[in-house]
Amino acid sequence: MPIELNINGDTITLEIDPRTPLLDVLRDRQRLTGAKAVCREGFCGACTVHVDGQPVPSCLRPVGMLQGCRIVTVEGLAPSGTLNRVQQAFIDHDVVQCGMCFPGMVMTLTEFLDREPSPSRDQIKTALVGNICRCTGYERIIDAVLSMQTEAAK
């Protein structure tokens, strides 16, 4: 049975093995390589995308389960050439290093901050338990997220 889903606003129809991970559809068929295939086991979070608004590791979502779902990847998060506030905070605080984990970090934190606009340091850390970063040691990422509240309060 063809699988129909919406990716970044475009509806596509797939005639493929329904067990194919969403990650492979994004990277190989759509050539949306922002989601990174790092662990393929759901631990690292580098392939996180939004499925109907929820951040999920796309490596663990067979496309057969996503009939009719709305997928947003990091490429579709903000209009081309613009940044959302999480991305802007990361630039302002110069927190990016190799960058492989950041698309996933951005997807997780964007949804988290919509839900929890004034989180504590510990709440942010807990929210990132499924997003691993090997370069930065996290704390400056947390600082950047906390700064968004300070900015918003001004």
């Binding site: 949306l32 390589t33 990847t73 940044l83």
Partner: peptide
């Protein structure tokens, strides 16, 4: 100095070898 590669890395545009 901020990083010039940050925007593309944050928007998923950077193409690493594995991409």
């Amino acid at each position: 100095l901020p990083r010039r590669d940050a925007q593309d890395k944050l928007t998923g545009r950077t193409r690493y070898t594995s991409d």
